[in-house]
Design a binder for these strands. Structure first.
Lengths: 325, 325
DNA sequence: GCTTGCTATGGAATCCATTTCATACTTTAC
DNA sequence: GTAAAGTATGAAATGGATTCCATAGCAAGC
């Protein structure tokens, strides 16, 4: 395959001039530019981008760390990221970590190896201290609230959002509220648990330990949760559920068992997913697309800034009132 | 940042020896290896992978072209791809094209620029001839049946699979069958339409043009389709629907309107999605995860083979009988 | 004792583009 | 008329690795 040297030789100019043509530098005469372009055409030449990356120290790529893509929550954030990346002519390298620290570190190492210009961490199993070490090699943005670290974050205030959900439910008169959560030890799950317990205590609401149901990540987990509820001697009047698809599973199963929603059981979901719209689930919209988009915009800005300062961007959220509460 | 030359100087060896240590070449004495490793540790050295990519002509990355990731169909294929990529220590570059030819070409150009080692095209708007041009620069695998082209493919026989679905329905006694499809001009959609029309004609089944409903890609499109069905003077006894989430929308809406499924309307879905399992939708499992996994395995093999021959891998499919037919 | 063959090591070429620096010719400005 | 600014061009240094080739010591084989 032809290289820049050969083009230069054939077009009768210097390598520098060819490079100038390739990069649209103004100081090239019309004739020479034309000669170079013709030779390029003739030899079907293109740059070897690896050489460009080597000498410029930039790759035009950003890696994204998330556990798995086949989950609405992550795929929507990814969608926001991808859309902005497209606009900025950046490439995204997708790394499904499955929460394996080893894999996540491997991605951060890519930053050190100069294979990528930045890293967006959508969700991680890594400790903030480890992530911080890598900020020496390039910008990092997380989609989790990590406090004021040496890397940026775009996050939802899970504590406040969850409280607002609970307040909405109590405002509607419900005095006993259950809770379905995903991974029990996830960083946002821990925050929500605290919000839940504190709110219950403050408002002296009814509470049973079994009303907190963990590891609900699929529609079927929601259906299983409904089954558990049906077997309980004391059932809560309302459920708050992180993820509309889980809420959907619970609602469908509960209805199948003859419960009326919200009459016998009120349900509030999270994430404003399409399935939630279909089932008219009252939900907390936490602007996931915007989260991804904002994360990319921040990392893009930081890549192009001389001395990037970490940014901490808080996203807003809002309740979408439909008919399951 | 330190480079290999500096390491060599500090460790008192040649650059070649450092490279040998880095690449685990056997012909390095114990002492020198130790000295090199210690210097590397001391200077916190890592290779600049761009230099490695330049000289080796490999990048260890494969690009994936798909229209959007926030759709079950694509996210599951991506999951299969990602899982295999992880096993092979390969990186995936995700390109959401939104079916913009311009963006898709850009990705193929990356192959020409040597930025990636291969391309997996999950779904595309490009003509096969254009894709074929790029096979000169590296291996390409599609997840569509493109016939015997100069690039590989992993595909489902949509014609046969769809026919089998129709046969299943007629086997159950249904004599009038409607049809919900996604993008009407999608490559697999076109094949299914043919299968549908031909099957109807062959078996002399009842048919109304309005029983073919297009552009059903979301749950809500399914719900809208249910509304259309309800308004029809002549309603089919069964519906065959490409995508369980669309089928779910249709079922939920139809039940809401008082129809009994399958009594008043039988529904057969596609893709074996979680929501389908929850609603007990009879569906056609077309092994999407396996499709992604196989696509990666093929491209990986071709990257490492001297003279890769295109491979055409046909996947099987099977009906999962549940309770909506 | 001499030929092979293996281990160990380094020099130099190679991959391919960008960019700095040096040079020289034109304009423009005062 | 001369200094300053702008245009046009190329040589050479640079980024940072891998790998071919040459050399040499040493053990085994006959």
């Amino acid at each position: 395959m032809a290289n820049i040297k050969e083009i230069a030789r054939m077009a009768g100019v210097s390598v520098t001039t060819v490079s100038r043509v390739l990069n649209n530098h103004p100081y090239v005469s019309k004739d020479k530019r034309a000669a170079v372009l013709q030779t390029i055409e003739q030899l079907n030449y293109t740059r070897n981008m690896n050489a460009v990356h080597l000498i410029t120290g930039r790759t035009g790529a950003v890696a994204v760390i998330l556990p798995y893509i086949h989950a609405f929550y992550f795929s929507i954030i990814m969608n926001g990221l991808a859309h902005e990346a497209l606009l900025s002519q950046y490439r995204l390298i997708l790394c499904q970590s499955n929460y394996l620290e080893e894999e996540e570190i491997k991605v951060l190492e890519m930053l050190r190896h100069k294979e990528i210009d930045g890293v967006v961490i959508v969700s991680t199993a890594l400790k903030p201290d480890i992530i911080e070490e890598y900020t020496a090699y390039g910008p990092v943005v997380t989609c989790q609230d990590s406090g004021e670290r040496r890397y940026s974050s775009v996050y939802i205030e899970h504590y406040a959002a969850f409280r607002e959900g609970l307040e909405y439910l109590t405002g509607k008169g419900y005095r006993s509220i259950g809770y379905c959560e995903g991974r029990s030890n996830g960083s946002s799950a821990v925050i929500r648990q605290a919000a839940y317990r504190e709110f219950i205590a403050e408002h002296k609401l009814a509470f049973e330990e079994e009303w907190m149901i963990y590891d609900c990540t699929t529609e079927e987990d929601g259906a299983a949760a409904a089954q558990s509820l049906l077997k309980m001697p004391q059932r809560p009047e309302a459920m708050i559920i992180t993820g509309d698809h889980v809420a959907a599973g619970l609602i469908i199963e509960a209805r199948r068992a003859g419960l009326s929603i919200p009459g016998d059981l009120a349900v509030m979901g999270f994430d404003n997913q399409p399935i939630g719209r279909l089932l008219q689930i009252t939900t907390m919209d936490n602007h996931l697309y915007e989260m991804g988009a904002a994360a990319f915009r921040i990392i893009h800005e930081q890549i192009h800034s001389e001395r990037p300062e970490p940014v901490y961007r808080k996203l807003d959220y809002r309740i979408i009132e439909r008919s399951t509460v």
